[in-house]
Amino acid sequence: MSSTDSTPARGAEHRTVSRVMAILEVIIASEPEGLRLGELSDAIGAPKSSIHGYARGLVTTGYLREHEGRYLQGPAVSTLLAIGGQQVPVGYHHALEQLSKACDETAILSILVGNSAIIVDLVEPTQTIRASPPMHQRNPLWPVSYGKCFLAFMEPRRRDAYLRRITDNPAEWDRIAEELATVHDTRIGYNRGERNPDLFGVASPILLHGKEVTMAIGLAGPAARMEAQLDRISKSVLEAAELLSNTGARD
C-alpha cells in the first residue's frame, strides 16, 4: 500500500486514540460525581452515537465503570499507573512533607506532560484554610507557578509555539518572555493570584543533569498568608528543589 493510500487509515487511528484519551481525562476530572452520556458528549464535543461505543469499550476493559447511568473512573486506571511505575518515589514525598512542615502550606510536586502540568503528589498543612488543588488533572502551563518553571527551561521553539497559542498580543508575549527569563535565572516561579486571586503559588524546577526539566516542587496557599512571608517561602522552595536536584531523590 502506498503512503497516500494509508493516510486516511492513520488519520482515523489518531482520531480514535484522541477520542478515547479525551473521554478518560474528562471522566477522571469529573470524579467523584461522574458524567452522564449527554454530559460526556458535550464535554468532548462529539455526538452521543460516537461517544457511546468508546465509553462502552472502556467499561468492558475496566477503565471506566457505569453506575446509575453515570460513567466513572474504573479500577484499571489505578492498575495501569501502578504497572507503569508512576508511584512517587519516597525521596520526593519526604521532601514534600518537610517543605509543608517548614512553611505550613500545601507542598506540591508537579510533572510536565505534553503542554500541561499535572500534580502527582501533595502534602497538606495543619492550617484549616489551605490550598487543596486536585491531583492528576491537566493544568495550563501559564500562569501557574510550576508551569512557569517548565516554560522557563523549555526548548525555545517549543516554548515560543506555546506562548503564541495563548496570546496574540506582542506586548503580552514580551512581558511573559521577560518573566520567564527571570524564572530561569532565579529558578523560582510565582503565581501571584493570576489564576485565582485568593491563592499564591511558588515553585522551583528540579534540575537533573542532562535531562529535560519535567518536575517542579512548590508551595500553594492563601494569598494574604503567602505574600506576608514570600521571601522565606521562596528560599525554602528553592532549597527543596536544589536538594532533589542534587540527590535525584533516590530512595
Score class of each variant (00 low, 15 high):
residue 209 H to A: 15
residue 111 I to S: 05
residue 239 E to Q: 15
residue 106 T to C: 00
residue 149 C to H: 01
residue 24 L to N: 08
residue 85 G to L: 06
residue 34 G to N: 08
residue 212 E to D: 09
residue 211 K to W: 01
residue 12 A to D: 10
residue 39 E to F: 00
residue 30 S to T: 13
residue 63 Y to T: 02
residue 74 G to L: 14
residue 247 T to W: 01
residue 41 S to I: 00
residue 177 A to F: 08
residue 50 S to C: 08
residue 25 E to K: 12
residue 51 I to S: 05
residue 129 I to P: 03
residue 245 S to W: 01
residue 184 H to C: 07
residue 139 N to M: 09
residue 105 E to W: 01
residue 209 H to N: 12
residue 80 L to Q: 07
residue 220 A to W: 06
residue 88 V to C: 04
residue 74 G to N: 07
residue 181 A to V: 14
residue 45 G to E: 02
residue 217 I to F: 01
residue 74 G to Y: 10
residue 184 H to W: 04
residue 17 V to D: 14
residue 163 L to A: 08
residue 186 T to Y: 08
residue 169 N to T: 12
residue 90 V to Y: 14
residue 30 S to I: 12
residue 88 V to E: 03
residue 83 I to N: 11
residue 14 H to Q: 12
residue 92 Y to L: 09
residue 45 G to M: 08
residue 87 Q to Y: 07
residue 88 V to T: 04
residue 25 E to H: 04
residue 67 H to G: 00
residue 167 T to S: 08
residue 93 H to K: 02
residue 180 L to D: 02
residue 151 L to S: 11
residue 220 A to S: 06
residue 247 T to N: 01
residue 112 L to I: 09
residue 77 V to G: 05
residue 121 D to N: 12
residue 188 I to Y: 02
residue 248 G to I: 03
residue 98 Q to F: 09
residue 74 G to Q: 14
residue 14 H to Y: 15
residue 127 Q to K: 09
residue 58 L to G: 05
residue 237 V to Y: 00
residue 90 V to C: 13
residue 227 E to G: 05
residue 250 R to W: 14
residue 48 K to C: 09
residue 41 S to T: 01
residue 33 E to F: 03
residue 32 P to L: 11
residue 19 R to Q: 14
residue 243 L to W: 15
residue 91 G to W: 05
residue 23 I to Y: 06
residue 63 Y to E: 00
residue 113 V to I: 13
residue 10 R to D: 09
residue 222 P to S: 09
residue 114 G to F: 03
residue 201 G to P: 02
residue 9 A to Y: 11
residue 126 T to A: 11
residue 135 M to L: 10
residue 32 P to G: 13
residue 41 S to L: 00
residue 119 I to P: 05
residue 251 D to C: 01
residue 99 L to S: 05
residue 250 R to I: 15
residue 238 L to Y: 09
residue 184 H to M: 13
residue 61 T to L: 12
residue 67 H to E: 13
residue 108 I to A: 03
residue 130 R to T: 03
residue 24 L to D: 01
residue 248 G to A: 01
residue 249 A to E: 05
residue 80 L to A: 11
residue 117 A to M: 08
residue 224 A to R: 13
residue 150 F to P: 07
residue 34 G to D: 09
residue 74 G to S: 09
residue 168 D to Q: 11
residue 85 G to H: 09
residue 5 D to E: 00
residue 16 T to M: 15
residue 121 D to Q: 04
residue 40 L to K: 00
residue 22 A to W: 01
residue 221 G to Q: 04
residue 2 S to F: 07
residue 42 D to W: 13
residue 122 L to G: 09
residue 223 A to V: 06
residue 38 G to R: 02
residue 75 P to T: 15
residue 76 A to C: 07
residue 233 I to L: 04
residue 227 E to I: 10
residue 201 G to N: 03
residue 251 D to E: 07
residue 17 V to T: 14
residue 87 Q to A: 15
residue 53 G to H: 12
residue 73 Q to R: 15
residue 43 A to D: 11
residue 191 N to Q: 04
residue 88 V to S: 10
residue 154 M to Y: 02
